[in-house]
Amino acid sequence: MYVERVSVTDSAKKVLDKLKRAHGELIFHQSGGCCDGSVPMCFKKDEFLIGSNDVCLGEIHGCKFYMSSDQFEYYKNMHLTLDATEGRGSGFSLEISIGFRFITVSRVLTDAEVKNLRPIET
């Protein structure tokens, strides 16, 4: 059994179920940098083009979770939990329109966990 890099809370699962009913299959891309501000972006599968420099960290509730490989350099020893909170955000992520916001909560992985991590998909 591998240690996962991403996991999801029950409240985020509920929001994802709603979004899936409206949009079908979904993916996440952790945004980097400037104006859309270091948040998980939820998109319809195939609507967002995954780049050749993106890596997949794992799957949460049936949704693949991506980020760019250069940003991933700083996430190598991080575990991310996708959570959802009420209140409208300002980005382009799908949940914004139904009055929720996804957030990623980070935890530094232990040395033992790092040894047994799920390999990333490139």
Binding site: S38, T85, G87, S90, R101, I103, V105, S106, R107, V108
Partner: peptide, 19 residues
């Protein structure tokens, strides 16, 4: 400027401590 930003900053402060 927003609750979203406030929470994000608090989150990063936590990440900084963990690192």
């Amino acid at each position: 400027v927003s609750q979203e930003q406030f929470e994000k900053i608090i989150n990063y402060i936590d990440i900084g401590r963990q690192e």
